[in-house]
Amino acid sequence: MRKANFIVSGTFTLFAIFIIAISVGYPPSNHGVPGPGMFPIIIASLIILSALTLFIFTLRMPKEMDSAIDLKSKNVLNVYITMGGLVLYFVLLPLVGFVVTTSIMLILFIKWFSKRAWWKTILISVLFTVAIYLLFGSVLNVPMNFGLLI
């Protein structure tokens, strides 16, 4: 947890510095009324203060209170692969179309996660995709036709 706390505190500090760096370029206060940059600077300063507090508390944290965070086990690697798959799905979705991309994504994930027979996996995936397509496309009037295919 120590390592994670240091990373959290460092990342948030960088994020806050980034906000301040942009906000100082915004128009200044006018007749005592804050300009658009003032509140972001206040909040970013608060973030830096909290990040520093977290940093100091973590430094003073007794070693026996430290706990490891699982970021490399096989289970977590499965999450990373899933994230990668979904990013790919997000990229292909507008290009290919909802029904085809979603059905393939579901088939691959369900087959991987559950090891069911192919025909059952395909049936579940296609039926669910079509149901969502009809629910959002026809009942809720959300435009669901995009991409080269359907």
């Binding site: 806050a16 128009p27 658009p36 940059g37 972001p40 909040i43 909290s50 977290l54």
Partner: peptide, 27 residues
Amino acid sequence: AKGVLCGGLGISLSFIGIDGITGYPRF
């Protein structure tokens, strides 16, 4: 501290867009 950090993140996200008072685009 972590609560404030995460709350700060949320508030910071709300800055994005045209400022309601001056009409100035932020972030």
